[in-house]
C-alpha cells in the first residue's frame, strides 16, 4: 500500500526532496477560513462518505450538522487538534467490519481513527490517483 506523498514542489532554498504535505499558506486553496465556511463547499465531498483507499486534500473543517456527539464548534476544535487542518493530505487506510466504521485516516505521518459521522466534518477534494 502506498503512503501519502505529494508531487515535489519547485525547489526552495532550505527544503529539498518531498515537501511536507501541508504547503505554505499562500498555496492553500482556503487560506484563511473564518469560523463559518462558505457555500463553495458544495463541490467538495465529505470524508465520512469516502470509500476505503480514498486520497484527498482537506478543503475545510466545518462540523455544522455533523455527529450528534458534541457541539459543532467543539468537534471542529478537536479535529483541528488532531492535525486535520485545511491543506493537509488525508488517506483512508482501514475501516471496521460493521457499517465500514470506524475508519483509520493517515494524515501526514500519523494515523488517526475516527467514526464516519465525525469524519463528515472534514470536507475534502479528491487527489489524482484516488480509487
Amino acid at each position: 500500500m502506498s503512503a501519502i506523498t505529494l508531487p515535489v514542489p519547485s525547489a526552495r532554498p532550505r527544503s529539498t526532496g518531498v515537501a511536507c504535505n501541508c504547503e505554505p499558506l499562500a498555496l492553500d486553496p482556503v487560506s484563511h477560513p473564518g469560523e463559518s465556511v462558505s457555500a463553495s463547499l458544495a463541490a467538495a465531498s465529505r470524508l465520512g462518505t469516502a470509500p476505503l483507499g480514498f486520497r484527498g486534500r482537506i478543503r475545510a473543517v466545518d462540523a455544522t450538522g455533523c455527529g450528534r456527539s458534541l457541539p459543532p464548534a467543539e468537534l471542529e476544535r478537536r479535529l483541528l487538534e488532531m492535525g486535520f487542518v485545511e491543506g493537509a493530505m488525508v488517506e483512508i487506510r482501514n475501516q471496521g467490519l460493521f457499517g465500514r466504521d470506524p475508519i483509520a485516516i493517515r494524515v501526514d505521518h500519523a494515523t488517526v481513527a475516527l467514526r464516519r459521522a465525525e469524519a463528515n466534518a472534514i470536507h475534502v477534494d479528491a487527489v489524482d490517483g484516488a480509487r
Binding site: G17, C22, E23, L80, E81, V85, G87, A88
Partner: peptide, 21 residues
C-alpha cells in the same frame, strides 16, 4: 479554532523548512 489553525499552519511551515521527507 482560528488560533489552533494558525498554530498548526506555523508548525507545518517550520516542518516544510527544516525537514526533508
Amino acid at each position: 479554532r482560528a488560533g489552533t489553525r494558525a498554530l498548526q499552519r506555523e508548525a507545518d511551515r517550520i516542518i516544510a523548512a527544516c525537514v526533508t521527507q
